[in-house]
Nucleic acid binder design. Structure first.
Length: 220
DNA sequence: AAGTCGGGGTG
DNA sequence: CACCCAGACTT
């Protein structure tokens, strides 16, 4: 682990301790694997603040795959409608049926088994492994992709990005680390107008340094 | 590999 | 008002 990588991880975890969105309902320790899986599906391309408004009542009403399969499809669509991408109602329905048929209603703890579920892709599978089963890995979403590509100066679409991100996860703290990257990228390393002036990583950030160089260039 | 889904928040 | 959001499925 290089010095820059160590600084990235440590400053990110420090920032997260002080500024993380620790109260998000799906981060509660008591959540079941199924409740975590439901959260990950609802969060696909959807802001955490939007999911906050629908999540608690949703998992209270459909706490298990059997409950969800038994629900009228219309009710599932109604619950997801304010989040957009309402096809996820059907995804959850099929996913729950598959959980019941193949895994006795339990969420499997293997990546390939998770990927076989409808509506579960690479990100969602890894996120469930991390948060429900404590696996030591990283899940790359739009936030992680943006943060890692900017800081390390890596092409966002290259294979190197995922490998770089995976090597960063601190042993035994994969969950906190992923949450730290998500929260940090959502509020500091934002897609539009990142807050570099107050960023604790800026002294080592490739994007900030290159931006500083070009600003000096213009001022002379 | 590209297209599509989507309501809601934000700069 | 254009852009973006804890992506995955279909074509």
């Amino acid at each position: 682990m290089t010095s820059t990588r160590r600084v990235f991880v440590e400053r990110l975890l420090d920032w997260y301790h002080e500024n993380g969105r620790h109260a998000l309902p799906w981060r509660e320790d008591s959540r079941t694997a199924f409740e975590i899986l439901v959260a990950e599906v609802l969060l696909q391309r959807t802001t955490a603040s939007a999911v906050e408004g629908a999540y608690v009542s949703f998992v209270a009403r459909y706490p298990t795959p059997a409950c969800l399969v038994a629900a009228p499809s219309d009710r599932l669509v109604d619950a997801i409608e304010p989040l957009g991408l309402t096809k996820r109602a059907g995804h959850l329905e099929r996913c729950s049926a598959q959980l019941w048929e193949r895994y006795a209603g339990r969420v499997p703890a293997e990546r390939t088994a998770l990927l076989s579920l409808h509506g579960v892709g690479e990100y969602t599978a890894r996120s469930v492994l991390i948060h429900a089963f404590g696996e030591h890995t990283v899940a790359v979403d739009t936030n992680v992709r943006r943060l890692v590509s900017r800081f390390f100066g890596i092409d966002p679409h290259s294979d190197a990005l995922g490998e770089t991100a995976d090597a960063l996860a601190p042993e035994g703290r994969s969950g906190d680390f992923l949450h730290a990257m998500l929260d940090f990228a959502a509020s500091v390393c934002r897609a539009r107008e990142p807050r570099c002036d107050s960023c604790p990583l800026r002294t080592r950030c490739r994007r900030f340094e290159s931006g500083r160089a070009s600003r000096i260039e213009r001022s002379q």
